[in-house]
Nucleic acid binder design. Sequence first.
DNA 1: ATATTTTTTGACTATATGGTCAAGTATTGT
DNA 2: ACAATACTTGACCATATAGTCAAAAAATAT
Lengths: 232, 232
Amino acid sequence: MVKYCSDLTNRSSFIWKKHTLPPEPIAFRKISKRSQNQTVILKAAEKVFAEAGFAGATTQLIADVAGLPKANVHYYFKTKEELYRRVVYNIFDTWMEAASAFDTALGPKEALSRYIDTKMELARSHPYGSKVWAAEIMHGAPIIQDYLEGQLLDWSKDRGQHIERWIKNGEMDPIDPAHLLYLIWSTTQHYADFGHQIETLNGGQPYSDAQWKAAKRSVKTIILKGVGLTPD
Amino acid sequence: MVKYCSDLTNRSSFIWKKHTLPPEPIAFRKISKRSQNQTVILKAAEKVFAEAGFAGATTQLIADVAGLPKANVHYYFKTKEELYRRVVYNIFDTWMEAASAFDTALGPKEALSRYIDTKMELARSHPYGSKVWAAEIMHGAPIIQDYLEGQLLDWSKDRGQHIERWIKNGEMDPIDPAHLLYLIWSTTQHYADFGHQIETLNGGQPYSDAQWKAAKRSVKTIILKGVGLTPD
DNA sequence: ATATTTTTTGACTATATGGTCAAGTATTGT
DNA sequence: ACAATACTTGACCATATAGTCAAAAAATAT
């Protein structure tokens, strides 16, 4: 895929007076329009898929949230399924990128600690993505199955081997690596997927910065101690 | 609601030859037919809602899974939403019943240990219910919000106070009770909600009895050690 | 036996929604 | 300036589906 500029660049947020300012480079504008609209639509779609599920998400609602007419959404994404695919792929990419925080060059304590932190931050910053992912898996991973069997399996095996090495070296207590990973995944994602429940039990208030910090600390403390490491 | 007999009794599993066997008591049969069909429909609905989501679940599919014509489903449950409500209420009841396994009369080790065991067993025996619950919360708890603010909040507060007492008595390490509960909920439910992912990472094989046992053991080990208790 | 109530079921309807299209507008290339 | 390309959008259509209904069958009561 060719990329002329970052999707994050959003030059349309400026208001250009006609003919009073120099035109942008051609290639830039050409791509910008597409990628700009696609980004807006993808963001809206992620939210709507998360809150209504695939079947409950209507292209009309996605269009409304994106602030575009429905036909325009279909201009950029042929079908609702294609749009959904793109959303799911983006989430998977984000997650795999975060997975690199599990850096086995560091010791178990640092590696696990940083991985948990990263996952918690992702739960906070990408709650919609997390929910879409959860729903995708719960429905049998119709779209992402190949990736599960490929990249995710490889990553899990690799990290599992490092964990087993640490255990053999006496750097942490013996535990089945798979269950440790599941525990980390589930706990961190819970703060996104069940954010509504947590908010309700928090007196209807969303977590403050301090509460997020405390949550991260609590989760890290239990898990690290749980595998025989000493949290700071 | 009047109940003449348990829903679990299923006398239709026998094949009665016409006029060769004595008829069942009238009151029994009258209710039996209703509750029997309702039970079948509710079970089918739970599965379909879990696998397709509320919007994706069609009454036709629910009827097919239940082995009945669609109109018959609507005879027992006026609307799809009513059927969904009943499914969600049943799940909540099951969960609150399991919540009593968190018996604070026992010490922290036994209480937590049994609660985790019970939740793990529930994840294994009621995976569909768990998924429906997860989706309900992820979509903002449109149906179950009142129960979250009532029963679940009360239960959590109560158990939280007991945990704090244990901590004060030096029976376990200091930890915010809310995060401990979330960690237990998320981890145990993960084995239901993300069962598909776990199965994929398990070489496409569902967990055997031994694997479930090992999973329970691993989860209990990490959590108990994580709060300063010594697992067996 | 007969009346009454409950259950069954195919056929039907109203509506919502994914997707199309063609006509128009804006942008870009020469 | 002009042609070509890319984007926009209201109107439209085919289909799927929640829910209805009436007529019949079965079960139950008297």
